[in-house]
Amino acid sequence: MTTSQAIRIHAFGSPDVMRLETMDIPEPGPAEALVRQTAVGFNYIDVYQRSGTYPLPLPSGLGHEAAGVVEAVGPDVEGIAVGDRVAYMNAGLGAYASLRNVEAAKLVPIPGEITDEQAASLLFKGLTAQYLLKKTHAVKPGDMVLVHAAAGGVGQILCRWAKALGAYVVGTAGSVEKCEVARAAGCDVAIDYKQPNWAETLLRETGGRKATVVYDSVGRDTFLTSLDLAAPFGLVVIYGAASGPAPAIEPELLNKKGNLFLTRPSVFPHNADAASLRANSADLFAAIAAGHVRSEIGRSFPLSEAADAHRAAEARATTGAILLIP
């Protein structure tokens, strides 16, 4: 038996509900590996779950992804050995920890050219971009792609990768400075959606052209305008709700806006089994090796300061990825 420092919540609410607790960690069971974590990834779903927007059984840990080193393996573990550098996402809540047992089938070996920090900041976000760009809509040369929150962690990955796939990339962000970040991430056009009449400005910049696909992780503040910015027969993808849930609409509105398609997908079903996870991760790692995906780490916080990380994310006071360091 060993111990781990872990963030736990016993109630939903503000970042102050998070507590750093000492947890007993048993020896890894069958098909499990004990991972000493060196970097933990932050994702906005952590905020939704901590706040109760996406309720959890309480008490609960938080966090979906991390990287580290295997310290021990249980019976019936294949393909993972002590000393391996590994990363994971979707291995059950509890990544906000210094040490934990993880189902070995959920672990992805980290290639030698990628650091633990890169892996922890890229796997969840990169696999999100991977399914959005390759499966929800297979982006091809000539597509116009609109990415909301283009200066964020997933947003920057989407922009760079879509550009590498040959798309014309338009991004929105919440300030002039964040628009500069979006342009640096590959946007041909970047618009501040906090400004009045931003949609008209966007269409002026694109010569009136609308998007083949809109990737919207902002939700309430952008969704209805996303429908206006999609081309006829275009696809609007809601995959997050940073400003709050997207408003409900009547299906007939999709017809009126141009025979649009609307979907609300998730990264987890696309990586629900070991074979899919490994194949999609291989695609992501290939994109990283080719330089199409990069890790832009905005800020790192000690694990004990996870509440400050959440405050910074909710205030949209960062660009790029946030890491917690155990």
Rank of each mutant, 00 (worst) to 15 (best):
V147L: 09
N101G: 02
G94V: 06
R100Y: 07
D76T: 04
D76S: 14
G92W: 00
H137I: 10
A97Q: 11
L99P: 08
A91H: 12
C159M: 12
G155E: 05
I110H: 12
A97E: 05
A119L: 02
T115V: 11
P75Q: 09
M144K: 07
G83Q: 10
G92I: 11
V108F: 09
S121W: 00
Q130Y: 13
T128L: 04
P75R: 10
P109A: 02
Y96K: 06
G79C: 10
P109Q: 13
D76Y: 08
E117T: 03
L158R: 01
I110G: 09
W161S: 02
G126Y: 06
L99E: 00
D76H: 15
A120Q: 09
R160M: 14
G152C: 06
F124E: 03
F124N: 15
V145A: 12
C159V: 05
G92F: 08
A91W: 04
W161T: 12
L146M: 00
D116A: 14
G83E: 03
Y96C: 10
I114F: 11
G155Y: 03
A104V: 04
A87N: 08
A105I: 02
A162T: 11
G152E: 05
D84V: 14
V139E: 06
A151H: 08
A91V: 11
E78T: 15
E78G: 10
A120D: 00
S98M: 05
Y96W: 13
N101E: 04
V102E: 01
D76M: 08
K163T: 13
K125I: 00
V77P: 05
G112F: 00
G142C: 13
L93Y: 12
G83W: 01
A104M: 09
S121C: 02
G74T: 09
Q130V: 05
V108K: 05
S121T: 04
T136M: 10
I114R: 09
A104C: 08
K135I: 10
L127V: 10
L146E: 03
E103T: 14
G152D: 08
Y96H: 12
V102R: 06
A81E: 15
